[in-house]
Design a binder for these strands. Structure first.
Lengths: 229, 229
DNA sequence: GGCCATTAACCTTTATTAACCTAAAAGAAA
DNA sequence: TTTCTTTTAGGTTAATAAAGGTTAATGGCC
């Protein structure tokens, strides 16, 4: 599992440094640039998963850059950082069309939430499990409905349970890093929510115990492997 | 299907840029103009599929422009962007006959949805049955009449119920952010009206319970997903 | 008065944190 | 090398906090 690559274009170096560090400490790979004219080349070279563009840049503004990027790639999500001007009304949190706007000053939390939103909605279509039903051992897993149906009973899963099961299933028979799971489901792998994952693993094990051929194996110090028989 | 051409008349350049960017990224071709006096010529030249007119323009206001356009073309849909101070009465007179209006500040999502609606009313799409009616599971939803017809009974929906259902349906099988819903329907996502949404979700769930294949799934901490079977 | 939107009150579910327990490696002493 | 500790990662369960669900009451507006 590779890290999510963020192309971040910002000319305020001090702000840029803070943002970059915060993103990196949450497991993002950050490619930074302060010169608007160089962004397109960098985009081609690095092929990022998401772009964060300051609108106010010395040479070429964020919108112009976005236009260029869109010519190369129609899907990559773009977040614009806009100065607080008269646009207050307009730029009110809408997250559609693969673009998003954040008004400066913004909090790191906000930026991270938006990034995750855009990535989530994008991967919606490309996920390996179809929106319909997937057979997992004796069970049938309806991802969209968040339902795990055994032979006798159906269980409604919460979003986290459902996403974790999906992740395990998509990577079945492979070792998945604990860190990667934490980054994907919780957005970071800090000490605090790391016990959270254990709790959900326990839950899933208990939900899946009707079929003994299904097992979530712990690889101590590394992660898990979901074996499906 | 070639691109949909949108003629967009706006004098606030910064807003215009954002809107244009968002529309283009959704695959629309945007023809922009900031001078009301030049619009009619531009219309003749480009023959757009839909017009979006700011009402407050320096030389000629949006309504006057619309009159001129209507002399040339009776069918092209026109969306007015009106300032929030505008009285509803004034605007309402213009909303008949393929016209619509959106009050500023508006969200891009709202604009896009309106554009799509107006275009769909002209050429019937796959999900539209006829005359603005949409099949949702066993139900038929008459958007412009705000009526949800089940197999046995018909229910009149209120404006909010209707708008929420529309939003859910148009984004079915995708996760919609709670925040986005609040911003679209209530204009903000403050703590206060946030419980309001829950109430309407409950109402819709109850209205839709005749068809068990329809489900509004909660994604706790994020939003909802409307699955339609 | 009737219709809606909103607010309030109270309840349920889900996520997170905490506390305590167990198993696996890694070291040290025999 | 064996065996006995020590350390560390993870497992389990319960408690707490947060988010949302439901229903009823309130209040505004034709």
């Amino acid at each position: 599992m590779t890290n999510v690559k963020v192309l971040y274009v910002e000319d305020e170096l001090f702000l840029g440094k803070i943002v970059r560090e915060s993103l990196e400490c949450r497991g993002f790979e950050v490619i930074m640039e302060d010169d608007g004219a160089k962004v397109l080349d960098l985009f081609k070279k690095t092929n990022p998963d998401i772009c964060v563009l300051d609108v106010m840049l010395p040479n070429k503004d964020g919108f112009a850059i976005a236009d260029e990027i869109r010519e190369l790639n129609e899907d990559v999500p773009i977040i614009f950082l806009t100065a607080k001007t008269q646009t207050e009304d307009v730029v009110k949190g809408f997250t559609l069309g693969g673009n998003d706007y954040i008004r400066k000053p913004f909090s790191m939390e906000e930026l991270i939430v938006r990034i995750q939103n855009l990535l989530r909605n994008k991967s919606e279509g490309t996920t390996k499990i179809s929106g319909g039903a997937t057979a997992i051992g004796k069970y049938t897993f309806h991802l969209n409905r968040q339902v795990l149906a055994g032979e006798k009973e159906e269980r409604k899963l919460s979003y986290r349970e459902s996403e974790l099961l999906k992740l395990l299933y998509e990577n079945r028979d492979k070792i998945i890093d604990r860190k990667d799971i934490l980054n994907l489901l919780w957005g970071n792998d800090s000490f605090f929510n790391s016990r959270n994952l254990d709790v959900y693993i326990t839950k899933l094990r208990s939900y899946l115990k009707e079929d003994t051929s299904l097992e979530i194996i712990t690889i101590k110090g590394i992660g898990y492997r979901f074996v499906t028989g």
